[in-house]
Design a protein around this nucleic acid. Structure first.
Length: 813
RNA sequence: GCGCGGAUGGCGGAACCGGUAGACGCGCGGGACUUAGGAUCCCGUGGGGCAACCCAUCCGAGUUCGAGUCUCGGUCCGCGCACCA
C-alpha cells in the first residue's frame, strides 16, 4: 500500500514512505479505544485535573468548525496537562433537551426524541470521535436521558426544600411564535433570541429560582476566580449592583398611604417634581383616586407590549399627589411604561433637570423642571453629571457625593428613607410551556398545595406523545395527556394533577459538570467522594456567549448546593477561559444561514491532525475570526517535514551545546504558550524547530534526542501522527503517556550569543554579535568601532550613550 | 448612549517589563528536480532609492536616548448592556 519515494536532497536520499494520514489516524483511534487510553481512573488520588469544555447542543447541522476550534484547544490543553503528569479527566456529553431541538423537530415533522437520538449518534460516532480528542466516553452525559434528568428533577426538589424555589405570578415575557415564556436573558432587543418574534407580556403563575438571594455573593466571589476578565466583567454588569437610597413619599388622594422609590442620586432629591409609578404595577389602582380608575385602566389596556421601543413621552396623571419628604411640597403622581415594575421599587421620583428620561417626560406633559445640580445650562438636555448643589435648602453648596451622604442621613433620622443597594439581577424563571424538557416534579393538590414528587418516584418520565406541539394557551402540551396528568397526592392520597411545565434547558446544563465524574452511580446524582476529588473544575473552556447565563446559573446552583451541605465548594469552575468565535463571512455558522463549514471533508482530505493544527494556527485562540482554508497546505508541509525529519534523525550528538540550548528553548517556549492558550505561537516554534531538524537530518546529523523532543512537544497538537512516529522511531509505549513531558532547564535555554542593536539617535545603524552578558564598556567600545557608526560620528564624541546589555547601544549625537 | 476590546506587509498573524517592527504561515518572485506539475525542495520577499539613506504599526499631538508598546485628543471596527432611575 505505502509507496516508497525517495526525496533527493543535498546530503543524499532519505527513503521514507509517504505519510498517509487516514490510515495512521484510524489505526491509532482503534488502538486507543481498545487499550482504553482515554479512560481516567476517577478514584486515583493522584493529581486529579478536571479539564472541561462546554458540551454541545446536538443540532441538526452537526458538528461544525465552530465547535471544533474550542474542543481542539481544550484537548491540547488536557493532553499537555496529562504529559505534565496530571491525571486528566476530560469528558463530553450532550445538551439534548430544549427549545432549539424541539423547534427543529417541529420544522421537519419528526419527534424530538428521534431527532435527538440521530443527532447525538452522528455527533459522537461520526464527528467527535474523529477529531482526535481524548474524551472519556465512559462518562458521557445526555441531558434528555431519564438517567440524567432524574437528577435534574432531584436538584429542583432540593432547591425547593431549601427555599430557593417560588411559584408565583409574574409578568413574563412570552414568545408568540415559540409559544412559551422566555427568561429575560433570552430576549434581545425585545425579540425572542431563537426566532426573532416580538415578545409580549403575559401574567402567568410560574416557577422561579431565587438567584437574587446570592446577588452579592455571586458578585464578591468573582474576585476569587481565575476567569477571563471580559467574562467577569459581563457578570458584574449583569448582576448590576447599584448603591443608592430608598426614599418614602407620603401619598394623598388615594388608597395607598405612601410609596418608596429607589434612586442612585439622592443628591438630586430637591429636584424631584413628580413621581412615576410603573404602568404595569399590579397594584396601580391603589395609587389612583376612585373616580379616575376607569380612565387609568382604559389607558393601561391600550399600551403596547414590552418589546415596543421605549417611549419616554407616554404617561398618565393619576390624580393623586405625593408629599416631598424634606420640603413638604405636593408633587403630582403619574404612571408610565418607562418605569419598570421589576427593578428597584417599581416607582421613581422624577428629576427632570438631571435625568434625560424624566426630562423628556416633563417637557411632553408640561411638568416643572428644577435645577439642583450646577453643571449644565439646564435648558434643553438634562445635566446628568455630578456637581455642586443649588436650590436645595441647607444642602446648597455641597458637592454631590457629600450631599448624598447628608441627605440620606436626614432621611434616616426622619424615618423617610435609608441607604440601600439594588441589583439588576432578576430571579431565574425556569417554567417552559413546552414538551421537550424535564417535567417539573411537582404535584398540585387542592388540599396540600404544591407537593414535591417523592424522590423514590423519580424520574417523572416525560410521556411519549405524538402531538408535542405547543398549545399557545399558556399551558404545556403535557396538559393534554390526561392519564399522565391525573395522579393522587403523595401527601393526602386525594386526586391531584401534575405540574405540566417543563424546566429551562439552562437548568439541565447548570449541574452537568457534577454528573460527569459520577455517571457510574445510579443511586445518587453525584457521589460525595468523587465530587470532593474532582470539583471544582480545574479548567473550563467555552464561548463567551455563555458568559452570563450558563456560567451564572451554574454558579448559583453550586452555591445553593454548598449551602445545603451537598457539595464542599461554592464555585464550580476554578478557571475559565473564553475561546474566540470562528465565523464564516462575518456570521456565526448556522444551517439557516447556510454558512456552516463541516470539518468532515477537511478531516477526510487532510487528516484530523492537520486540520486541528490549522485551526489552532489561524490566529490567537481567544480571538476568533473568519474561517478560510487558504493556508492549510502550510500545515501539510510542516507535518511532512516532521514525518521525514524524525524518521531520519539518527545521530547521537547528545553533547552539542548549541542544539541542547535550542531544544530546551523549544520545551520552555511550547510549555509557556500552551499554558497561556497561545497555540498559534507554539506551533510557530514547532515549525522552526522541525525545519532546522529536517535540514540537519538531510545532512546526516539530525539528533535522535531532538526528534524525540519534537514529537513530545507536538503530541498535544497532533496526537495521531506523533503516536505513529513515536512507535516508528523505536519508542515503547505511547507518546501521550502521563508525565512524559521532556525535562526543561531554563538555564540551559539561554542563548550563548546575542545580537545587540547599535543605534544612532534611536535609528538602527548596525548590529553586534557578542557572547550573552557582554558588559556595557565593551559594547560601547565595539559599537563605536563599527564602520558605519564611526563614519557617522566622524571623530566626534557622542553626547550620550545608552547601553542595555544584550539588547541595544544607543549613541546620541 | 454607557462599558469593554481592537486597528501592524498583498493576506492570517508575531513582538516579554518601552530596546533590531514584521517571528511563523499563506500568497507572490526566482531557481532545482521533472515529459509535465497546481507535487516536493532551496533562495528571496514592507515601500522608495544605484547607494549613503529615507519612509513605514489607523490619524494628530506629547513623554523618552529610544514608542507598535506609555499619556492626551480624534476616526473606524467588534463585543456586551441599553426605559435598570
Amino acid at each position: 500500500m505505502t509507496e516508497i519515494t525517495t526525496t533527493p536532497r543535498r546530503g543524499g536520499a532519505r527513503p521514507v514512505d509517504d505519510y498517509a494520514a487516514a490510515a495512521v489516524e484510524s489505526k491509532w483511534r482503534r488502538i486507543w479505544e481498545e487499550r482504553g487510553d482515554h479512560r481516567t481512573d476517577l478514584d486515583s488520588p493522584e493529581r486529579p485535573f478536571y479539564n472541561l469544555s462546554m458540551f454541545p447542543y446536538p443540532s441538526a447541522e452537526g458538528l461544525h468548525v465552530g465547535h471544533m476550534v474550542p474542543y481542539s484547544g481544550s484537548d491540547i490543553y488536557g493532553r499537555w496537562r496529562r504529559l505534565r503528569g496530571d491525571n486528566v479527566f476530560q469528558p463530553m456529553g450532550f445538551d439534548a433537551f430544549g427549545i432549539h431541538s424541539e423547534n427543529y423537530a417541529l420544522r421537519i415533522g419528526e419527534h424530538p426524541a428521534v431527532v435527538m437520538r440521530r443527532a447525538v449518534a452522528n455527533f459522537r460516532e461520526n464527528q467527535l470521535k474523529k477529531i482526535g480528542a481524548m474524551f472519556d466516553w465512559e462518562h458521557q452525559v445526555n441531558t434528555a436521558d431519564p438517567a440524567y434528568y432524574r437528577w435534574t428533577q432531584w436538584l429542583f426538589l432540593r432547591l425547593f426544600e431549601a427555599g430557593f424555589v417560588e411559584w408565583r405570578d409574574g409578568a413574563v415575557l412570552w414568545c408568540p411564535s415559540c409559544l412559551t415564556v422566555l427568561a429575560n436573558e433570552q430576549v434581545e432587543q425585545g425579540r425572542c433570541e431563537r426566532c426573532g418574534s416580538v415578545v409580549e407580556t403575559r401574567w402567568l403563575r410560574q416557577w422561579w429560582l431565587k438567584i437574587t438571594r446570592f446577588a452579592q455573593e455571586l458578585l464578591d466571589a468573582l474576585d476569587t476566580l481565575d476567569w477571563s476578565e471580559s467574562t467577569k466583567l459581563m457578570q458584574r454588569n449583569w448582576i448590576g449592583r447599584r448603591e443608592g437610597a430608598r426614599i418614602v413619599f407620603d401619598l394623598q388622594g388615594c388608597e395607598r398611604k405612601d410609596v418608596a422609590v429607589f434612586t442612585t442620586r439622592p443628591d438630586t432629591l430637591f429636584g424631584a417634581t413628580f413621581l412615576v409609578i410603573a404602568a404595569d404595577h399590579p397594584q396601580l389602582e391603589e395609587f389612583v383616586p376612585a373616580e379616575r380608575r376607569g380612565e387609568v385602566n382604559a389607558w393601561r389596556n391600550r399600551l403596547p407590549g414590552p418589546a415596543a421601543e421605549p417611549d419616554f413621552a407616554v404617561g398618565i396623571d393619576l390624580g393623586s399627589s405625593a408629599v416631598h419628604p424634606l420640603t413638604g411640597a405636593r408633587l403630582p403622581v403619574w404612571a408610565a411604561p418607562y418605569v419598570l415594575y421589576d427593578y428597584g421599587t417599581g416607582s421613581i421620583m422624577a428629576v427632570p433637570a438631571h435625568d434625560e428620561r424624566d426630562h423628556t417626560f416633563a417637557r411632553t406633559h408640561g411638568l416643572p423642571v428644577v435645577e439642583v445640580i450646577r453643571g449644565g445650562d439646564g435648558s434643553e438636555i438634562a445635566f446628568t453629571g455630578e456637581g455642586v448643589l443649588v436650590n436645595s435648602g441647607e444642602f446648597d453648596g455641597l458637592p454631590s457625593p457629600e450631599a448624598r451622604k447628608r441627605i440620606v442621613e436626614r432621611l434616616e433620622n426622619g424615618m423617610r428613607g435609608e441607604a440601600t443597594i439594588t441589583y439588576r439581577l432578576r430571579d431565574w424563571l425556569i417554567s417552559r410551556q413546552r414538551y421537550w424538557g424535564p417535567p417539573i416534579p411537582i404535584i398540585h393538590c387542592a388540599r396540600d398545595g404544591q407537593v414535591p414528587v417523592p424522590d423514590d418516584q423519580l424520574p417523572v418520565l416525560l410521556p411519549e406523545v405524538d402531538d408535542f406541539r405547543p398549545t399557545g394557551t399558556g399551558v404545556s402540551p403535557l396538559a393534554t395527556v390526561e392519564d399522565w396528568v391525573n395522579v393522587t397526592c403523595p401527601r393526602c392520597g386525594g386526586p391531584a394533577r401534575r405540574e405540566t411545565d417543563v424546566s429551562d434547558t439552562f437548568l439541565d446544563s447548570s449541574w452537568y459538570y457534577l454528573r460527569y465524574p459520577s455517571t457510574d452511580f445510579d443511586e445518587v446524582a453525584f457521589d460525595a467522594a468523587r465530587t470532593r476529588r474532582w470539583l471544582p473544575v480545574d479548567m473550563y473552556i467555552g464561548g463567551n456567549e455563555h458568559a452570563v447565563r450558563h456560567l451564572l446559573y451554574s454558579r448559583f446552583v453550586m452555591r445553593a448546593l454548598c449551602e445545603m451541605g451537598l457539595v464542599d465548594t461554592p464555585e464550580p469552575f476554578e478557571r475559565f477561559r473564553a475561546h474566540g468565535m470562528i465565523v464564516k463571512d462575518g456570521f456565526k455558522m448556522s444551517k439557516s444561514r447556510g454558512n456552516v463549514i463541516n470539518p468532515d471533508e477537511y478531516i477526510e482530505t487532510y487528516g484530523a491532525d492537520t486540520f486541528r493544527l490549522y485551526l489552532m494556527f489561524l490566529g490567537p485562540y481567544t480571538a476568533g475570526g473568519d474561517f478560510r482554508d487558504e493556508g492549510i497546505v502550510g500545515i501539510t508541509r510542516f507535518l511532512h517535514r516532521v514525518w521525514r525529519a524524525t524518521q531520519t534523525a539518527s545521530a547521537d550528538e547528545a553533547d552539542d551545546e548549541a542544539r541542547e540550548r535550542r531544544r530546551h528553548r523549544l520545551i520552555g517556549g511550547v510549555d509557556e504558550d500552551i499554558a497561556g492558550l497561545h497555540f498559534n505561537t507554539a506551533i510557530a516554534q514547532l515549525m522552526e524547530f522541525a525545519r532546522d531538524l529536517d535540514q540537519e537530518a538531510a545532512e546526516g546529523r539530525g539528533r535522535r534526542l531532538d526528534a524525540e523532543t519534537l514529537l513530545l512537544c507536538l503530541a498535544p497538537f497532533a496526537p495521531h501522527i506523533t503516536e505513529e512516529l513515536w512507535q516508528r522511531t523505536g519508542h515503547e509505549g505511547s507518546v501521550h503517556r502521563r508525565g512524559g513531558w521532556p525535562e526543561h532547564d531554563p538555564a540551559l535555554a539561554a542563548r550563548l550569543e546575542v545580537e545587540v542593536a547599535v543605534q544612532i539617535n534611536g535609528k538602527l545603524r548596525g548590529t553586534l554579535t557578542v557572547p550573552a552578558g557582554t558588559g556595557e564598556d565593551e559594547l560601547r567600545q565595539r559599537a563605536v568601532e563599527l564602520p558605519r557608526v564611526a563614519a557617522a560620528l566622524d571623530g566626534a564624541e557622542p553626547r550620550k550613550v545608552v547601553v542595555v546589555v544584550d539588547r541595544v547601544v544607543n549613541l546620541v549625537v
